[in-house]
């Protein structure tokens, strides 16, 4: 099963990475052998539970007690664009 440039285009939308047409070609070329290699897992037989975590940890939680917050200045300190204490983003639509 080969991944097509159309597939890559869809994934690049999901991942929000802008790719030019030539990049779409390049990525599908380099990604295909990797996916083929990943496909070797198909030969693994036997059904076991999926290991989301390697440790059997449960119920790790904290009490509802406030901790230190950042100042507005600190919160905004790394943003390229701010306005009136807000982060400024481009229009949505």
């Amino acid at each position: 099963m080969m991944i097509t440039t159309n597939d890559i285009e869809h994934i690049s939308w999901l991942a929000h990475i802008w790719l030019t047409d030539s990049e779409l070609e390049e990525y599908s070329e380099k990604i295909n052998p990797i996916l083929e290699y990943f496909g070797t897992l198909d030969e693994v037989e036997g059904d076991v539970d999926a290991a989301h975590h390697v440790l059997d940890l449960y119920n790790v939680w904290r009490d509802d007690v406030p901790s230190e917050m950042l100042s507005q200045e600190e919160a905004l300190s790394n943003a390229k664009e701010i306005k009136d204490g807000y982060f400024k983003a481009a229009r949505i639509l």
Partner: peptide, 14 residues
């Protein structure tokens, strides 16, 4: 800084 939000995100990441 380019276009609407989703475009800006995608170009930033590209």
């Amino acid at each position: 800084e380019e276009g609407a939000c989703h475009t800006s995100f995608s170009k930033t990441r590209a």
